[in-house]
Amino acid sequence: MGAIQIEHYLMLSAVLFTLGVLGVLLRRNAILVFMSVELMLNAANLALVAFARHWGQSDGHVFVFFVVTVAAAEVAVGLALLVTIFRTRQSINIDELRMMEG
């Protein structure tokens, strides 16, 4: 019940991040995996903003800006790839995308 300290935000960020990791590891749907990655990025953004606020520096905001941009670009390309793969394999089960086996 005290003032919100930065630790709370960081904890929240950690929890969200972990959930994102779990999503990456546990879900088989490739789209879901992407989304979990997005969640991880968002959690990192939260931590960055929290720190920026804590120290009064807006460098953290800039970093977040970049992260968002890169994430967007990554999602675009990644989903495009996914679509292409789906076209050939008719499946987006990442367990079936095992070309790197062995």
Binding site: D95, R98, G102
Partner: peptide
């Protein structure tokens, strides 16, 4: 066996 090909 680690090179299972499973991304996960």
């Amino acid at each position: 066996r680690t090179q299972s090909g499973y991304v996960r």
